[in-house]
């Protein structure tokens, strides 16, 4: 009798455990299947979503993706009467979990996703069950710009200086992540200038900024948003932005583009909206129209300003062509 008691108790414990797991599973399933949407009943051109929208974000609350997701959702909500929505976070696997989940929402018209450069880069680095061509591109709304920064005390004063320096010794360049735009720009720059940097890989922009202030690296390639405070204070010096045009105003405005300095390297982290595979045409048009209208509003200006992003609106075939070009470019740089 007594010897049996412990195992009974263990079993009781396990039973609790399993019941709890099952309880959560059923919650989860309910949450996912929700109201299925996607019934394209109306065939008129002025289609509007019925019921609440779901904006999927593959990264957590508070990050850059969350910010653009909320901004775009707010823009879409302004677009027609009674349109509301929520941001749903599907995190994990460097974004793969979110994209995989979104691919399963075949044909739905009330599901949209805030997307960025990882849509094209992820499948090149990781075994993903998807490529960008699985989804329905709706519109690109902005570009986050990458800039090149050196410590304030560095003798390097231009992109050409850095390239010359790299011909004589190993120059260390801090980047965030191997698969991010920073590292792709490093590859493009090396290819153009016929040099090779030693890249030091960090996890986020805060770490690269600390590396600049502590003189741990010769230069940093990173998002302008992370570094602008240092540039303004004169604790770091920006040498180039890798965009088609300079910033219009603010502390980054005097910084020349790489193209101006004779290096044809432009690559940015685009931000935009995609739909699930097979999203009905009228829904795509509705969302793209909404976002196009949104780019005319002060809310859009405010988004660009607080994110230090540059305007870059594209829709339809233009956006698809952009994605195809970007993928080709990355393949070339990475040799994949």
């Amino acid at each position: 009798m007594t010897t049996h008691r412990p195992s009974l108790r263990l079993r009781a414990g396990m039973a609790f455990l399993l019941t709890s797991v099952l309880a959560i599973t059923s919650c989860g399933v309910e949450g996912i299947s929700g109201d299925g949407g996607g019934d394209d009943a109306s065939e008129s051109s002025d289609w509007t979503p019925q019921g609440p929208l779901t904006m999927v974000a593959a990264f957590g609350a508070g990050g850059g993706t969350d910010k653009v997701a909320r901004a775009m959702l707010a823009g879409i909500e302004q677009c027609a009467d009674g349109v509301t929505g929520n941001v749903e976070y599907r995190e994990g696997g460097s974004g793969v979990v979110g994209y995989t989940y979104f691919m399963q929402q075949q044909g739905k018209s009330d599901m949209i996703m805030a997307s960025t450069t990882e849509l094209t880069t992820l499948p090149l680095f990781v075994d993903t069950p998807f490529t960008w061509e699985n989804y329905t591109p709706i519109a690109r709304i902005a570009n986050d710009t990458v800039s090149l920064v050196v410590p304030a005390a560095s003798p390097i004063t231009s992109l050409q200086d850095l390239v010359d320096e790299a011909k004589t010794r190993k120059v260390t360049v801090g980047v965030v992540g191997v698969s991010g735009p920073d590292n792709i720009i490093r590859g493009l720059l090396e290819e153009q200038a016929g040099i090779e940097f030693e890249s030091v890989v960090f996890n986020n922009g805060g770490e690269t900024t600390a590396a600049i202030l502590g003189n741990d690296v010769d230069a940093v390639l990173g998002g302008a948003g992370d570094i602008v405070g240092q540039v303004e204070a004169g604790t770091a010096r920006a040498l180039a932005v890798f965009a088609e045009e300079r910033y219009q105003d603010g502390p980054m405005a005097p910084v020349p583009t790489a193209v101006e300095q004779g290096f044809d390297v432009t690559f940015g982290q685009w931000r935009g909206l995609i739909g699930p595979p097979g999203m009905p045409e009228e829904a795509v048009t509705f969302y793209a129209d909404c976002l196009e209208q949104w780019t005319e509003t002060p809310a859009y200006e405010e988004y660009l300003e607080t994110s230090l992003a540059l305007p870059a609106f594209q829709r339809g075939d233009d956006f698809e062509q952009y994605l195809a070009d970007q993928e080709a470019l990355i393949r070339e740089v990475l040799g994949r």
Binding site: G62, A210, L213, G229, Q230, E232, T235, T306
Partner: peptide, 28 residues
């Protein structure tokens, strides 16, 4: 003092600064 997050949570807080139009950094 530097605009560099000292932890994951302060990184999110720096995002809040930006939302209010305040640029974190050495000049803050």
């Amino acid at each position: 003092t530097l605009g560099i997050p000292g932890s994951g949570t302060t990184a999110v807080l720096l995002g809040a600064f930006l939302l209010f139009g305040i640029q974190p950094g050495p000049l803050l």
